[in-house]
């Protein structure tokens, strides 16, 4: 690199001055709390006494409890069935919701990409679920899914799909489906918009050429649209997946205390603030962070995201 001119050096210095306040705030609100959370996971901290927490090693994660008679058992997060069922719930929720959101999002994006009268109004209408606060969405659906007075049961019974009302949010068989339903309804617009932005970048003359060559609509979609929109779609999928892995609000509001829908975030918060197992909850938070961090890093490497901006 050529020796920097005085001007460039001055600009570099002011760059750091400009960045300092933001970096300080991020350190105070993200980095330090994260490190403390990880530390609490290795202590015996409780909600009332985290100032005097002592280091206890990996006891919150794994510990051999000896009964003294040659027998014993493993304790800790890594052998806690409730934790692993929360992990499984979260993974299941993420896979199903994100898959369906991608499919529905693609359908809506393809529709919105057509020219028809009133397109602006339709696009605005589609955005409404996204604008509604998650808690409000959960309450609205909780009411619609009500076992006795809910309109969903009424609809399904009117058309003969159900013969008796279903307790959607309370029944162990349907609680997770109810949570997924709300999430899919709420976040499909986000997916649709990101995919639509990708679709709009595809130049019209490619479609024109395909039409002149007599390529059918299905083949056009599979050979032209899908490959070209894939990058935009993948970004949307990853952002949604990272978001789905930390789901909390819908579960907390729609199906409180249901083991079938307890996700990692709900498990961690329960332990932190409801069961007064602050250290145990911190350990769970740490594991959740590790899982999401690994996925994020994998994604950044896989897509070789250009962050320096030099190649533009």
């Amino acid at each position: 690199m050529a020796p920097q001119s005085g001007l460039a050096r001055q600009r570099t210095r002011s760059a750091w001055v400009f960045l300092a306040p933001m970096l300080f705030v991020l350190a105070a609100v993200a980095l330090y709390p994260l490190l403390r959370t990880i530390w609490f996971g290795f202590t015996d901290a409780s909600l009332t006494s985290f100032g005097s927490a002592r280091f206890v090693g990996i006891r919150n994660y794994l510990e051999w409890l000896d009964y003294g008679d040659g027998n014993g058992e493993w304790l800790g997060l890594l052998v806690d069935g409730r934790w692993w069922s929360a992990v499984w719930n979260t993974v299941r929720f993420t896979l199903v919701s994100v898959t369906l959101e991608t499919i529905f999002g693609m359908v809506i994006a393809l529709v919105l990409n057509q020219k028809f009268p009133g397109r602006a109004v339709v696009r605005a209408a589609v955005l409404i679920p996204w604008a509604i606060p998650t808690v409000v969405s959960a309450k609205m659906w909780g009411w619609m899914l009500h076992d006795q007075f809910g309109i969903i049961n009424d609809m399904l019974m009117r058309v003969g799909i159900l013969s008796a009302p279903v307790a959607w949010t309370a029944s162990p068989d349907t609680a997770m489906a109810a949570v997924m339903m709300v999430d899919i309804w709420k976040t499909t617009p986000f997916m649709a918009l990101l995919i639509l932005a990708g679709l709009q970048m595809i130049p019209d003359d490619i479609y024109e050429a395909a039409r002149l060559d007599g390529v059918g609509p299905v083949r056009t979609f599979r050979r032209i649209t899908l490959p070209l929109v894939l990058p935009a779609m993948l970004v949307a999928v990853v952002f949604r997946a990272l978001d789905a892995l930390r789901i909390f609000d819908i579960v907390y509001v729609l199906t409180p205390n249901s083991p079938e829908t307890r996700t990692m975030s709900v498990f961690a918060r329960e332990n932190l603030f409801d069961y007064d197992k602050f250290a145990y909850g911190s350990a769970a938070s740490t594991l959740l962070f590790l899982i999401i961090a690994m996925i994020t890093i994998g994604f950044i490497y896989a897509t070789r995201m250009d962050l320096s901006g030099t190649r533009e």
């Binding site: 403390r36 959370t37 975030s265 918060r269 740490t286 994020t296 901006g309």
Partner: peptide
């Protein structure tokens, strides 16, 4: 402003935006 470490900084900022809130909850509470 081009300076050393800019890409890394931007990466850090981006990764904070993907932070699961629950991961900082107990530390933030303190």
């Amino acid at each position: 402003i081009p300076f050393k470490g800019r890409a890394l900084l931007l990466l850090t900022v981006l990764s904070v935006s993907m932070f699961p809130q629950i991961a900082v909850l107990s530390g933030l509470f303190e």
